[in-house]
Amino acid sequence: MKKKLRILIAKPGLDGHDRGAKVVARALRDAGFEVIYTGLHQTPEMIAEAAIQEDVDAVGLSILSGAHMTLFPEVMRLLKEKGADDILVFGGGIIPKEDMEVLYRMGCGQLFGPGTPTQEIVDYLKEKFPDRV
């Protein structure tokens, strides 16, 4: 029996623009994944802890506030600290190219910019986790 793909979708920080996060959550559900949605205003600590308890395969962060260079590294650092750096961190939002490069070098998964079709995100996750359904 194949393991279900479980994804945590989180909105870190104070930014309340959750339109993208919700659309992605629904698209992932429609692709057959289990999505744990934690809601708004999450600290990196809350996100890392939820990711662990829910035993997700990946964490998707949606950040439109410009705080990505603070929040992505912090979530990744906390996962590592908790011995869970095998959990993939990916995300979406408004992230300039040079910032993306820095985050990729830190081991961050794919970062999807504005205008990305949701199918692209689904395909990315399927490719990353071929042994999941």
């Binding site: 692709a31 999505v35 809350m46």
Partner: peptide, 21 residues
């Protein structure tokens, strides 16, 4: 779970965030 896709959006945590840490 969605009977169509087999996926699900699990949103109960939204109301429990004070317990997360």
């Amino acid at each position: 779970s969605s009977p169509f896709s087999g996926g699900a959006v699990l949103g109960d945590r939204v109301r429990m965030s004070s317990l997360f840490t």
